[in-house]
Simulated scan of single mutants.
Amino acid sequence: MDETFTKIASKCARIMGQPQTFIIAILLVIIWGASGPLLKYSDTWQLIVNTATTVLTFLAVFLIQNSQNRDGAAMQAKLDEILRSLDKARAEFVGIEHLTDAQIEAIRHALEKDIRDAGGRDGLAVPTVERLLQRY
């Protein structure tokens, strides 16, 4: 079932992310809007678009979350492989995405302090990023 859901979710996410799908959605909204005067802006007329958008939004949330979960897991696996393959990398960093936000923040602060202490730099990318942005 997991494999089937992944295939369906991936295909739906791919379709929903296409410009043609966006254009079709806009056209449907225009058709719905144009039908308003014909249907005298009735409660049924309003209910059609409200129901359709609610259902589609509800389903899209699950598709988006599934895609983000897979992308995040794939990215973590790739980063873990890089850490595993580098001689000077700390293997203890593999799997830190499972820690709490507070634990990860503490690790980040410790790394920044370590960089400041070791290299005399401030440990942040701000000066470098500012220089880059000034060039463009």
Rank of each mutant, 00 (worst) to 15 (best):
Lys78Val: 02
Thr54His: 05
Pro37Asn: 04
Ala91Ser: 13
Gln65Cys: 06
Ala110Asn: 12
Tyr41Ala: 01
Ala52Arg: 01
Cys12Ile: 15
Gly33Lys: 03
Leu63Ala: 05
Gln103Cys: 06
Gln68Ala: 08
Ile48Thr: 07
Ala13Arg: 03
Arg84Glu: 14
Trp45Asn: 05
Leu124Cys: 09
Thr6Met: 13
Leu99Lys: 11
Gly120Tyr: 06
Leu79His: 07
Asn66Phe: 12
Pro19Arg: 03
Glu3Leu: 13
Asp71Ala: 15
Asn69Lys: 12
His109Asp: 14
Lys78His: 12
Asp117Ser: 01
Pro37Asp: 08
Ile30Met: 13
Ile107Gln: 04
Ile82Trp: 12
Ile82Glu: 15
Ala77Arg: 09
Asp43Val: 04
Gln20Asp: 00
Leu28Met: 13
Pro37Lys: 03
Cys12Leu: 15
Ser10Glu: 14
Ile8Ser: 06
Ile15Tyr: 15
Arg135Asp: 11
Ala13Phe: 10
Gly33Ile: 01
Phe22Glu: 12
Leu132Asn: 03
Arg90Val: 04
Pro37Leu: 05
His98Asn: 14
Phe93Met: 15
Gly123Leu: 01
Arg84Asp: 13
Gly72Asn: 14
Phe93Gln: 09
Pro127Ala: 05
Arg70Lys: 13
Val126Phe: 10
Asn69Ser: 04
Leu38Phe: 15
Ile82Lys: 12
Gly120Leu: 09
His98Pro: 01
Ala52His: 01
Ala118His: 11
Ala102Gly: 02
Gln76Val: 08
Ile31Cys: 13
Ala74His: 08
Ile82Gly: 06
Arg131Ser: 12
Trp45Pro: 07
Glu92Asn: 00
Ser35Pro: 00
Thr54Gln: 11
Met16Cys: 08
Lys40Met: 09
Gly119Leu: 13
Val126Glu: 14
Ser35Leu: 15
Gln103Leu: 02
Ile96Tyr: 07
Arg121Phe: 14
Val129Phe: 10
Lys40Trp: 10
Val55Gln: 05
Glu130Arg: 09
Gly33Met: 11
Glu112Phe: 05
Thr53Arg: 08
Arg14Gly: 10
Arg108Glu: 15
Pro127Gln: 04
Thr6Cys: 10
Leu83Phe: 05
Pro127Leu: 03
Leu132Ile: 02
Glu92Gln: 00
Ala34Cys: 15
Lys78Thr: 05
Ala89Ser: 15
Ser85Trp: 03
Ala89Pro: 01
Leu56Gly: 05
Ser85Lys: 08
Thr128Cys: 09
